[in-house]
């Protein structure tokens, strides 16, 4: 039998397979190149970037939870300029797509970030993290307030000619509704889900474990919630959806694809098994072969629901 086709198309972005890395769990790619050949991936999504560098939150920043973890890294990053000068040349060596995740604490910063990244050689698409608070409007999180969300996406849309993926926050009442707002504001695709806000208390200290008090929950613990939300998003919009949340192996990834996601991202699993994303690609191939399916696109969105 001919090897099955794994290639997918996300708003004009051609991926050799539907597997990406989730932002913030894969550094800038370098860290993992000791463990597997990055050429195996559909895309590398890098750690969230802001215009200037950020030092991030005080420690402790992470704590393990049942089948998951909370993180409050505080978006520590090296800034767009250093990324372009020092990290991008390394990523350009690989035949995989590079997706730059970015954020800001004002609409202007999002716009500036999107512009700078769009001009850089070797960035193939942008992923916009809107789970950040807006400094100008009382620190309301962009991605949880429909009005602010619409404004910031509209502005970023004008600032870039690259495919623009908007990463949705799960900390909202109706994620399908939020996806529609992203779609009408000009997003080429949406990705979901970002982490779910959580908290762990040290009962002896009677204080939160994380210095930031709360953090974002990720890992297998959030997978059923993520699958449900991705399914809702897929029904709400026509633009492609990238699904993520607790994917540990190919079987988990298939849940998202069957729910309607055109691609998936592997996040926390990279921490446990450095080759996790690559293993998911292999696992998908094997699944198609054993099921006798010749093209991954025949699986996408086939959920009987």
């Amino acid at each position: 039998m001919k090897a099955p086709n794994l290639a997918v198309d996300i708003a004009g972005l051609k991926l050799k397979n539907p597997v990406m890395t989730a932002s913030g769990t894969f550094g800038y790619g370098e860290e993992y190149s000791d463990y597997f050949d990055l050429n195996a991936l559909g895309a590398v999504v890098v750690k969230g970037l802001s215009v200037g560098p950020r030092t991030g939150n005080p420690t402790p920043r992470i704590v393990e939870t049942p089948s998951g973890m909370l993180n409050a890294i505080g978006l520590q990053n090296i800034g767009v300029k250093t990324f372009i000068d020092e990290k991008l040349p390394f990523l350009r060596r690989f035949d995989t797509k590079v997706i730059a995740n970015f954020f800001g604490d004002s609409i202007e910063e999002y716009v500036e970030c999107a512009r700078m990244l769009s001009d850089a050689e070797g960035v193939h698409a942008l992923e916009m993290n809107i789970s950040c608070p807006n400094k100008q409007e009382g620190w309301i999180v962009f991605g949880t307030d429909p009005m602010t969300m619409d404004k910031v996406i509209t502005a970023a849309r004008k600032a870039t000619g690259l495919p623009l993926i908007v990463k949705l926050s799960p900390n909202v009442k109706d994620i399908g509704q939020m996806a529609k707002i992203a779609e009408s504001a000009g997003a080429d695709a949406v990705s979901a889900i970002n982490t779910i806000t959580g908290m762990v208390i040290d009962v002896r200290k009677r204080a939160p474990v994380l210095a930031n008090k709360t953090g974002g929950l990720s890992g297998p613990a959030i997978r059923p919630v993520a699958v449900r939300m991705v399914w809702e998003v897929c029904r709400a919009v026509k633009i492609p959806v990238v699904g993520m949340g607790g994917i540990m192996n190919a079987e988990d990834a298939l849940q998202f694809l069957i729910a309607g996601a055109k691609a998936v991202a592997v996040g926390t699993a990279n921490f446990i098994t450095p080759s996790a994303a690559c293993d998911v690609v292999e696992g998908l191939k094997l699944f198609l072969e054993t099921e006798g399916v010749s093209d991954i696109n025949e699986i996408i969105g086939t959920v009987r629901a």
């Binding site: 550094g27 993992y32 402790p60 920043r61 992470i62 704590v63 993180n71 921490f271």
Partner: peptide, 16 residues
């Protein structure tokens, strides 16, 4: 420090 990845990717294990 508490670690998630051990390989430099998560930024969870930092010190000032």
């Amino acid at each position: 420090e508490h670690m998630a990845c051990g390989i430099g990717a998560c930024l969870g294990c930092v010190v000032k």
